[in-house]
Design a protein around this nucleic acid. Structure first.
Lengths: 238, 238
DNA sequence: GGTGATTTGTACGTATGTATT
DNA sequence: GAATACATACGTACAAATCAC
């Protein structure tokens, strides 16, 4: 039983649409020519000739591949191979979260729970690969966060950077991308809700500091407690 | 600083393309009319009027939303709201895996590692929500797996079902979907590689039985050991 | 079962906006 | 600024699938 790319078991073996054929054709072109991220693809008209499909079909195929972040189109310049990311996951989850934004916030809570689960799951690898220079980086970021908070400024970028540096020692790139993807979803959904209380910001900064401290002591248990404390104010408010 | 849906900080505030406007328009239409999965959207021509864009732009927008599994298009019938899934994540990761299929299998290893991490992370919730009827279901599935293995048959569907039932008690739907998404990626990528050895299949069946046993004893530690054993043959071969 | 109406799918032509040289 | 190459947008026509009558 072959189930195709989507994992369905399509009983009806309908011939793939022209657009889908074009999608597969372009994917195959990338593989055959071993194109790397940043490499240019043929122009739309060239792709039309190459694949034997009309402009419309090729364009719709390119839209699909753009959405999956497999290619990157720059107006007036050309089409390029993209370093595939989890952009589509982010978009899909943000839309889902905005659907029920008015009456409940389940999706946001789910997202935060997963961020917490990821941070907990990587605890062992993180503490094992302790790197003094990374710890130094983390400390500096927390200081910046603290400074911004005292000025009443938003420290979202520092927050993102903190978690990225924290994950930078993790071998598995997909975990790193999932981590950032859920961070993006989280931050895009938060504005739809009422803002956090000021005391929560203060607690958040302290929680980041706790994580650094735990890592400095190479203390897995304390790390996990700090992670739980980091997300606690959010989860209880949801 | 507003960063838009993608989390970028676009310095150049270029006006969104017509296609992107159409995407947002259709999303907004779904929200405004509180459409639920399965509900029909206006026809393409009606959407063109409603949004004021040409058919091509609306079509490309629909392609994007189809890729994100936000809408579902049926030829000759109409366009429907879809229950958003992680289909796009699956497609993107499968493509990534096929890129380096010939020389290495990093992506497959990364995917298996994440499956393992998810199964480990849910251990506490799983063992806490022990349900005899679910355990019964799991036992039956393992028996089916065992029977199929002895006949030399593929038991992928039973494997999928096992992990779905295992996760069915988890509250967080996104975790359930992630679990299934990574299962799909895993199974779609496996055929690109050499088949597993027969003794691995036997070990896999036993590992599933071990998981059921651990849950029957409500033994978290044994559950985690079983999960590790479940993925071990795969990870070492990668 | 067949026919026509409806809806999406494909093709092509033309004009316009955009970036590079 | 001009020329070129490219993507973007729109409109129209027809093909293919589906459904109701």
């Amino acid at each position: 039983m072959h189930t195709g790319t989507w994992g369905f078991s399509e009983a009806t073996h309908r011939p793939a649409s022209t657009t889908q054929q074009a999608v597969e054709g372009i994917k195959q072109y990338i593989r055959d020519n071993a194109l790397k991220p940043g490499d240019t693809l043929p122009t739309e008209s060239e792709l039309c000739e190459e694949l034997g499909f009309s402009r419309s079909s090729v364009r719709e195929a390119i839209r699909i591949l753009t959405t999956l972040d497999i290619v990157d189109v720059r107006h007036g310049t050309g089409t390029f191979v993209s370093s595939t990311s989890l952009k589509a996951l982010v978009q899909g989850l943000i839309f889902r979260a905005t659907l029920d934004a008015d009456d409940n916030l389940e999706t946001l809570r789910d997202v935060v729970e997963i961020r917490q689960a990821i941070d907990l799951a990587i605890g062992q690898e993180i503490t094992a690969k302790l790197d003094p220079s990374k710890l130094e980086q983390l400390s500096i970021i927390v200081e910046k966060m603290s400074a911004k908070r005292k000025q009443g400024l938003n420290f979202a970028e520092e927050d993102r950077e903190f978690h990225q540096v924290l994950l930078s020692e993790i071998d598995n790139p997909i975990i790193r991308e999932l981590n950032d993807a859920f961070w993006q979803v989280h931050m895009n959904v938060i504005p739809l809700r009422k803002l956090e209380e000021p005391q929560d910001f203060s607690r958040t900064v302290r929680a980041h500091q706790d994580i650094v401290d735990a890592l400095q002591n190479n203390d897995l248990k304390k790390y996990q407690e700090s992670v739980l404390r980091h997300y606690e104010p959010l989860l209880t408010s949801l």
